[in-house]
């Protein structure tokens, strides 16, 4: 064997290790989903059959989609806004702001969930000061309609720094001369924004949406820490439901079936977004 091949094998062999660690369990997961309970009795596609009739399953899809759309949209928009604002020349000491804004990224999500739970409390949290001025504090985690927003807020708190960072670094890479010459040519701020900056960051936006969507479809830690599925079932996302099925009811077959479906959904979205992002240029 040539030395070239040796080197190639050496450098690329971990790839196969990785695939083994990941692909095999995935197929095993599909295998598990054909059984009832903890690999107890074979039942073929019965789990999937029940799953599609399960009202809880349907509602978790709704909740998950709502959650994902709210969070991804707001994180992208706010991240853009923050990045844009921070880049303005009027802001001194940019690195100070950057550091502070990135803080939430280092807090474990479960801790963030519990932190917000305490924060949201209408009587023992800071919102109870509203009652001193005769406004009744919002029932963040009690009102089922509000609960989704409250939980989305936690997710936003944690992950907007991420989108912000992508846009900030990306926008900073835009060469100054282009903007300056446009300014000199008399282009308005809005024009610069749409005609120059936007094309540059279009890809970034898609990337941000890609990452955040995939991550939020399976968001678990912060929801578990704050509402554990919410008032009634209002914040029971896919992830929470699968967790409960698998490790509270120990109905691993049924839970595996649900996770296989989840995997199909996330991979589809990922492929669509990747195609848009990486194969456009």
């Amino acid at each position: 064997m040539s030395k070239e091949l040796y080197q190639k094998i050496f450098f690329l062999s971990p790839f196969f290790l990785l695939m083994l660690l990941v692909i095999f369990p995935l197929f095993y997961s599909i295998y598990i989903s054909f059984f009832k309970g903890f690999l107890e009795s074979f039942c073929g596609l019965e789990n999937y059959f029940y799953l599609f009739q399960d009202p809880r399953f349907i509602s978790t899809i709704k909740v998950t989609l709502t959650f994902t759309i709210i969070t991804v949209t707001s994180q992208t928009l706010i991240g853009l806004l923050l990045a844009f604002v921070l880049l303005q020349p009027e802001v001194k000491n940019k690195s100070f702001w950057q550091t502070i804004f990135l803080l939430p990224l280092v807090i474990p999500p479960i801790v963030a969930g519990v932190m917000f739970k305490i924060l949201y409390h209408p009587s023992f949290g800071p919102f109870s000061y509203l009652s001193m001025i005769k406004i009744s504090p919002p029932l963040w985690l009690e009102d089922p309609n509000l609960a989704i927003i409250s939980v989305s807020l936690i997710n936003n708190w944690m992950w907007t720094p991420f989108t912000f960072l992508i846009f900030y670094t990306g926008m900073r890479a835009i060469p100054h001369e282009i903007i300056e010459s446009a300014n000199l040519d008399g282009a308005s701020g809005l024009d610069i924004l749409t005609k120059i900056i936007f094309p540059y960051i279009k890809t970034l936006i898609l990337i941000a949406i890609l990452f955040r969507s995939i991550d939020n479809l399976i968001a678990f830690d912060e929801i578990m820490g704050s509402t554990a599925g919410g008032p009634a079932f209002a914040t029971t996302t896919f992830a929470i439901y699968i967790y409960k099925l698998a490790f509270k009811s120990w109905d691993l077959g049924y839970a595996s079936a649900a996770s296989v479906i989840l995997f199909i959904i996330t991979t589809t979205i990922a492929i669509i977004l990747i195609k848009l992002t990486y194969f456009r240029r």
């Binding site: 409390h121 209408p122 009587s123 023992f124 009744s136 504090p137 029932l139 985690l141 009690e142 509402t227 008032p231």
Partner: peptide
Amino acid sequence: APPGLPTYGCTEYALE
């Protein structure tokens, strides 16, 4: 009950 009862666990009622 105080507002927020649906989110009350042991911690909350003890604090009350």
